[in-house]
């Protein structure tokens, strides 16, 4: 009902990040074919967190509570100290944790001061129950993203194999 409950002010002041985050989400494949009002609702119920440069965001093996969207700053995705990817503004990462009981597959470390939006699985699950058609679309988009990532990984692996064969 009230967008701004009276007790909300006790904890922190509201910031104008919702519209920025909604615009970034609209460009993300996870929210493909979603109406702006739905994106606004999802973003409005997400949690914004601030991380200092060098701070660990999550670690490989931790149980994930949801997907993350980088609003500002830069994040490095690593395993065993080796960087796998660099996450820039507007990128979504850790989306595997939108599925239940999934563990983080890599470490994420803030390389600059960051603003990160958490799309929590608990929130998304409640929303999914109320909006089954849109939930199906979200899951479809998630499956597409994960299969694309798998394809990219396979390409990299096959390229590495080819390189090894050429050396032999």
């Amino acid at each position: 009902m009230a967008q701004d409950p009276i007790w909300g002010n006790l904890f922190r002041k509201k910031e104008g990040w919702v519209s920025v985050a909604s615009e970034l989400c609209a460009l993300n494949p996870l929210f493909d074919r979603f109406t702006p009002s739905v994106i606004d609702w999802i973003v409005g119920n997400a949690s914004l967190r601030h991380f200092k440069s060098g701070e660990s965001i999550f670690r490989m093996g931790d149980e994930g509570a949801g997907a993350l969207l980088l609003l500002s700053g830069q994040v490095s995705i690593q395993t065993g100290g080796k960087e796998l990817a660099s996450v820039e503004q507007g990128d979504l990462f850790g989306e595997v944790a939108l599925l239940p009981d999934q563990y983080r597959t890599a470490d994420a470390i803030a390389t600059q001061d960051c603003e990160i939006l958490f799309f929590l699985r608990s929130e998304i699950s409640e929303w999914k129950e109320n909006h089954p058609k849109q939930a199906y679309r979200l899951m479809e988009n998630l499956a597409k993203m994960l299969s694309k990532r798998l394809l990219e990984k396979n390409k990299i692996q096959s390229a590495a194999c080819n390189k090894d064969n050429q050396h032999l």
Partner: peptide
């Protein structure tokens, strides 16, 4: 959600 925002980053997901 506002109450959970009080958690430190390290324990937020947990």
């Amino acid at each position: 959600n506002e109450f959970m925002q009080l958690l430190p980053n390290y324990h937020f997901e947990l």
